[in-house]
Each structure stands twice: as structure tokens, then as C-alpha cells.
Design a binder for these strands. Structure first.
Lengths: 332, 332
DNA sequence: AGACTTTTTGGAATCGATTCCAACATGTTT
DNA sequence: AAACATGTTGGAATCGATTCCAAAAAGTCT
């Protein structure tokens, strides 16, 4: 009752293992009659080729792995959908695993690439240092998506976070913002770039940032609320707040509203990502939409080139255009 | 510059492949001196054992795979965290893949279990029929979590959806609900059970359900809004609505509020899952909290038993206790 | 020192699918 | 009918790590 092997199939079909393998791999050099015999034997024995044996012989797995701190993020799950669809077109299976931001767990998963459990790796939000990612990418099939190191040599697919933050900040200024604040996250690479974009836009308008708050670690709703509470303690309140994510922005709006102030009349709020939370918020959030699905598709394409063409090493950075989505949290 | 093998390591270390393998597998029968030589050679050659060769020989991969329609769901991602932590304790790596509700994609992923790419499978929201799941589980290492078929023979780990829906519906009645409505999802197994629980509670209170709406396919915010719009067209409005998920409930609250009515004063609303959206909603949602993390841990334990103990076949259903979380969307 | 146990080692066999080469069968051409 | 191309086939070698067995080395006891 154990697993059937090619040998078993060959015996039942009355042919050689070579012929069985040829049928399995759709080689044209098989007669109609033996093809039928083999197919029948396969069905009869309920045979499936063993992956490890095939992978060992072929020296590839047709599997790729994506890593992210957290699977919850709408941008990541949408981007991974893009990865998956593109991968499927090329016959690859794509899997994903959360690292929970733990270096050890991440290492264990990265090892799956090193030991040939998968053919390629897509990193959404690395925990390891930028240098380590770069070094790894030098030798192995790795592509970064969304979160990419600031270094010149960094590579991968993302939007231009600095430009996106610049754009949405300028929108806050154009709709009347004069005392601008930001709630961001310096722990994340993208967070640092967004801060730069924010500062640039403020400087360009010859204003000075009124107040800024930063959270270490991940963006979340409660963090957004408590940071906003800090913000509201100031003697002169800001009249526009740029938040590094929609979730934080939702917390920000909530806290402002609970304090008896109005959004956007007293304080305008902008988010980032255009997640479903942007629409669930009251008022609905002005935000930045990322072309996450396409980013995923492009990331796989780059990975595919890296995996299949021997000469290709890591490519440069690809920026995809973002989109400013204006809703009620800033209009007035 | 190709990959180093045990042979290479053996040669550089001046020992046999057997000894190298013994070092790799921490066999005690190795002298201190050769252990050092081998370790040095491994580092020098940057050697990693090839997974496919090891898996082939050992006939197991120490990897498991989880499948879900969608990775976005907070309950699933939390349950998967539980799976991952429990798996790590036993030395397993756990991966997850979305099926997008496509049967073909699901089949391809399930094939990874059939062909030995992974040792076990956890199914969160199967697309295939209950019968197919049951049949598969007869032979292979499979455990269901959250969404489990209604059949007597079904097995896996979940809360008692019927009871949870009953409890929250009774809460709606106890807080003054007389004309009860429900927005649910008959496409999902859990959705059908929740409907049963709702009907039971309504019947017990000798009321009759005022109106019910069902969505085919997944719960989402926009579905919640449009279904609520239908609900509000009735001549006699309901005074309490039970929604099959927090996201739908958020849409429901929004639509009610936009219509100029008050929650909970005019219409009370209850959700399900206790996701972050329950807290983001204004007013915050009364909902059912699932012990998702523990469900994941238990699921892995069951899977582990199934994978390692030869005799163990599928076990019965394990129900974990849910919790009614009362917030402002129902209190009055 | 000789007769033992115990520890450590080398190396061949193994896991199961693929692939290559030689051999055979069939068909075509002259 | 011989010479040749074309289409199929069988089976051994291969991928790389593990494991088992026999043998060598080291240690213990009388």
C-alpha cells in the first residue's frame, strides 16, 4: 500500500522506466499504444512522481517563496497575487511565509533558497540588514518588492515612496494646510523615504514642519491613536497630518473626531496605501494608491529572468507610478 | 563555482562521506577531531545539504503547507501564526498559499502534498467539495481549520459557529431587538452554520426573522453596504442586524448612518471575528472573538500526530470556546 | 602481550525520476 | 533487396545525502 514508483508503473504497463518517464514528460518519442498502457497503469496505481526525486535530478523545483513580516497588509497580499498569477503563467508555484519580524525565522526561510527547496525568493519586508540582502542577491535569485533599501545599489520593484509622500503632502498644502504634521515609521525603509518626501514638500512651500511623530515597529490602529493623542497636546494644533499608512490615518481621524474636532475642516488627514480601511473611515481617506498587483507581476518577471538566464544578475530598481486618491479627509 | 556536495566536503576534510553526513546529523559517533575538520570544510566551501536529496532519502520534508482562499482575513492570518509557532517547535517549516477560490489552483497546491513536496496540509477555506476533502483526508495528512464541512464525519478545529451565532443573536434580543435581520453568506460552510444559530435564537425567543440577506462569495465592505441598502428598503425596518463578518458589519453601520439613522438606537448591529475593523468602526462593533491563534496551534498538533504516528487517522472535530465581545454597536 | 569490548571510520547501496546511448523496429528510397 | 532514415524502446548511469555493514582504530582487562 506504499507509494508507487516509476518502476511499479513500468512493470504494470509492461514497458521500461524510460518509456514511463517519457510519457510523464510528454516526450513525443512515444508510440500511441505504449502511451495508453502507461496512462492506464498510472491511473490504476494512482501514481504521482515524487517531487524530491524529480527535483534532485532536474536541479530545480519550479517553486518560489515570498517572505513578508506580516501577511495582513493589503498591499502585500495584492502584490503577492500578482506574483502568483505571473508565476503560474510560467509553471511556477508560489508560496508565502510570514517572518513576524524575527531574524531567526527569516533565516530559516531564506535557507530554503540556499538548500534548493525553492528556486527563487521574493522579499517584501526584510528583517535582515540591507547589506545582507544585497549580499545574498549577489549570488542567489532574490528580488525585493515594496520595501527596498535606500542604497544606490539597491534593486527591486516599488513605487517612488519619496515622490508619493511629496505629492500627497503638496496636496495637503494646496488644500490649505499650513501647519503640517506627519506620523511615520522610521524603522521601515519606506517610512524613511516618505519622511524625506514630506520634508521636501514642506520646504518647497517655505513652511516648516509643525510637529512630527514616529513609531518604532509596525503601523497599527492603536499606535495611530496614541500618537495622535500626543499630537493634540501641542499648544498650536497642526491643520494637516500626513500618516504613513491608512490604518494609522484611521486611528488619527478617530482620535481627532473624539476630541471634538472636525476632519478635514479643523485638521485634514491623509493616509497611504489605499486599503479598504481608507473607504471604511469616516470621512473617507485621501491616500496614495500603489499598483501592487503589477508590482508583484514585474517582480516575478525579474525573478524569472534571474532564475533562468544564467548570466543575468540583479537588475536595477524599477519604479511604478503611484496615484493620488483624493477623498473627503482632505477636501473642503 | 557550482554547488558543493558531501563528496567535496569529504575530500577537503580528508574524511569519508559517511563521516560528513554524521557530522551534519549530529550523530554522536564522530571523533572531536574529524568533527572539527568537517565543520571547517563546510564553512570553507560554504556547503548546504541539498534539500531534494535529503528529502528523497529520508522520505519527508519537514515542511507543511496551509491553504486559504485569501490571506487577508485576520482570523486566518492569526491562526496561521499559531500553526507556524507550533510547527517551529517541532522543527517544521510552515508555508501558506492563497487559492483565490480557484479550484484549479487549489488542486495544484494540494498536489504538493500528493507528490511529497510537503508532509502535511492545513485547509482554512477549501474550494473543493466537503466530500473531496473528506476523501483526501482519509489517505493523506490533512487537517481543516475554521471552515469545516457540516457533515457528521467532518473533522478539524474550529469554534462552534452555530453556537456563536446563537449567542450573539440572543444578545441582540436581550438588548431589545425584536425585528431581527441577518446578512450572511451561504456559500461558506461557516456561513450556513451561523444562519442556523441565528434562526435558532430567533425561534427560541418566539420571534420570526424579519428579513435576511445573503451574499454569494466573499464577505466584503461593499457587499455589506449594498445588502444593507436592500434591507433599508423594507417598509418595516429591522431593529437589529447580525452580520456574518466585521467587514460586512462595518458596511452595514455605514449605510445605516448615511441613511440618517442611529446605531444602536434605531438599529443595533453585530459583527463576527473581532478583527481590527470592529474597533475602527464608529460605533465600535459588538462581535464574536475566535481563539484563532490557539486553533492554529491545535491544528498543527493534530497534523503532527497524523504525520508521525502511522496508525493515527483523522480525528474528530475539536471546538474551541468563542467569546462574545460587547461594544457600542449594540449597547444602549 | 593477547583477547576482548568500544569507538570511529570508509564506502557501497539506497531513495525515485530523468536522460542518454545503443539497439531494435518500422518505413522509405533507390 | 539492400541501404538508409525515422521512430521507439530498454536499461544503465546519474543527481546528492543517508545509512548500514564490515573493518580498522583505540581502549580495557586479565
Amino acid at each position: 500500500m506504499a507509494r508507487a514508483t516509476v518502476q511499479d508503473v513500468a512493470k504494470t504497463a509492461g514497458v521500461s522506466v524510460g518509456t514511463v518517464s517519457r510519457v510523464l514528460n510528454k516526450s513525443p518519442a512515444v508510440s500511441e499504444s505504449s502511451k495508453e498502457k502507461v496512462t492506464a497503469a498510472i491511473r490504476q496505481l494512482n501514481y504521482r512522481p515524487l517531487a524530491s526525486a524529480r527535483d534532485l535530478r532536474r536541479d530545480r523545483t519550479m517553486r518560489i517563496l515570498a517572505l513578508a513580516k506580516n501577511l495582513n497588509s493589503p498591499v502585500i497580499s495584492e502584490a503577492f497575487r500578482g506574483v502568483g498569477d505571473a508565476a503560474a503563467l510560467s509553471g511556477y508555484v508560489s508560496l508565502i511565509a510570514p517572518t513576524s519580524g524575527e531574524l531567526e525565522r527569516e533565516q530559516q526561510l531564506v535557507d530554503m533558497l540556499r538548500n534548493g527547496s525553492v528556486d527563487g525568493l521574493i522579499m517584501f519586508s526584510p528583517t535582515m540588514s540591507d547589506d545582507d540582502v544585497e549580499e545574498m542577491a549577489e549570488l542567489l535569485s532574490v528580488v525585493q518588492v515594496c520595501e527596498i533599501g535606500d542604497a544606490e545599489a539597491a534593486f527591486g520593484v516599488s513605487i517612488d515612496d519619496r515622490k508619493a509622500a511629496f505629492d500627497i503632502t503638496r496636496h495637503l498644502i494646496e488644500t490649505g494646510g499650513r501647519r503640517l504634521a506627519m506620523i511615520g515609521n522610521r524603522a521601515a525603509r519606506s517610512g524613511r523615504l516618505r519622511e524625506e518626501g514630506f520634508r521636501l514638500a514642506v520646504a518647497e512651500a517655505e513652511l516648516s514642519p509643525d510637529q512630527m511623530l514616529f513609531a518604532e515597529g509596525d503601523f497599527d490602529f492603536h499606535t495611530g491613536r496614541s500618537l495622535t493623542r500626543e499630537l493634540l497636546k501641542a499648544k498650536r494644533l497642526p491643520d494637516a497630518v500626513f500618516c504613513g499608512s491608512d490604518t494609522v490615518a484611521a486611528g488619527c481621524v478617530r482620535e481627532i473626531t473624539d476630541a471634538g474636532l472636525r476632519v478635514p475642516d479643523d485638521i485634514a488627514v491623509a493616509g497611504f496605501d489605499d486599503s479598504v480601511q481608507a473607504e471604511m473611515c469616516v470621512p473617507e481617506l485621501t491616500t496614495i494608491r500603489q499598483p501592487a498587483y503589477d508590482m508583484g507581476r514585474l517582480a516575478f518577471d525579474a525573478l524569472f529572468a534571474r532564475m533562468t538566464v544564467p548570466g543575468v544578475h540583479r537588475r536595477g530598481r524599477t519604479f511604478l507610478p503611484h496615484e493620488l486618491v483624493v477623498r473627503d479627509s482632505t477636501r473642503n
